[in-house]
């Protein structure tokens, strides 16, 4: 097993101080050891569960929420929009 704290943190969108990262690394060695204690399993091709299905929804309109309610928890909103630092992608 190899556990690259930096790489995983990047994927998880988290950052750690060097100290935190070192502590994590140690804890993780243990945790990963625990979860690695899995037997070899016959691997199914997919994770479908045909015996446990859901029902689908009819295509019927339910009124949307008023914009004030939608934006009520937004930390920074302008002109009815959510604001994020400038990004171009």
């Amino acid at each position: 097993m190899e556990f690259d704290v930096k790489h995983i943190a990047k994927l998880a969108m988290l950052q750690f101080t060097a100290e935190e990262a070192a502590a994590f690394e140690k804890e993780f060695a243990q945790i990963v050891k625990m979860v690695e204690n899995l037997p070899e399993m016959e691997s199914a091709v997919t994770l479908l569960e045909p015996e446990n299905q859901m029902e689908l929804r009819e295509d019927a309109v339910i009124p949307s929420y008023p914009r004030e309610e939608i934006l009520q928890n937004v930390p920074h909103a302008v002109a009815g929009c959510i604001v994020v630092p400038k990004t171009v992608d």
């Binding site: 929009c81 604001v83 990004t87």
Partner: peptide, 14 residues
Amino acid sequence: LIHDDAFEGSLVDY
């Protein structure tokens, strides 16, 4: 995402 120079950031319409 709406990019408008009138605003400092980018605006998001969901």
